[in-house]
Amino acid sequence: MLRDITLGQYYPVDSPVHRLDPRTKLFGTMVFIISLFVADSIWGYLAATVALGLVIRLTKVPFSFMVRGLRGILVLLLISVSFNLFLTDGQVLVQLWIFRITWEGLRTAAFMAVRLIYLVLGSTVMTLTTTPNELTDGLEKSLGFLGKVGVPVHEISMMMSIALRFIPILVEETDKIMKAQMARGADFESGNLIQKAKAMVPLLVPLFISAFRRATDLAMAMEARCYRGGSGRTKMKPLRYQSRDRIAYGAELLYLAVMIGLAVVL
């Protein structure tokens, strides 16, 4: 059951979007998110819809796979929609007992829903088309300027990449320790909250000890392979912009300009 959890669910197909430099995609995602907050008219949202639809089409990822990520925000979506729907003042459309729906409420609720859904879809495009490695590389490179103000960008991205490597291992280990303790009569399911929390001790202690042991081993192995931080390191797969990235940047900027234009004009 635990094994089903996958992180950064990359969808392996070959598409123009997959082939883009991760930095281009990071920038694009950012532009898209900004545009969602800039837009405040039907036309703005229509433009965003066209852009998003076009990009999703280009990724070659089945749409059903795309929307799977929306299930996670369903509750959030319902709450925010109903808040906006029922609690906005204005011209009353329907009144049912104490519930009152206004024209303004309907409008904000709809925009809010679209904004949330697009936000998730937009970032899903990024995670589905970019491997976790590319993502960390892209972040390291794009955020490189932060290094100048003392942020350990290389170290953070190295940590992210190691975490990605060890999460499946630790998930499997959790499963194993859980079973081993169950074989000794441990019960992880019944009891009240405090009993349940107490029952976790025989699971968490071995898990932490194992994680620390792995961390010590790994640190030694990295040192043995001459790892000494980011300076002086070269890259096996350095990020290099291709002409398609230039085109994509152009499209992203054009899109942003259109969105701002729409917001200003309308």
């Binding site: 280990e173 079973k179 081993a180 074989a183 000794r184 009569g185 019960d187 025989p202 071995p206 000890i209």
Partner: peptide, 20 residues
């Protein structure tokens, strides 16, 4: 099942990893 698990003892591979 709990009784079964006490009658049929199972020692996993690398069982020392369950010590806590």
């Amino acid at each position: 099942m709990k009784k079964l698990r006490s009658k049929v003892g199972l020692v996993f591979q690398y069982p020392e990893y369950q010590l806590f």
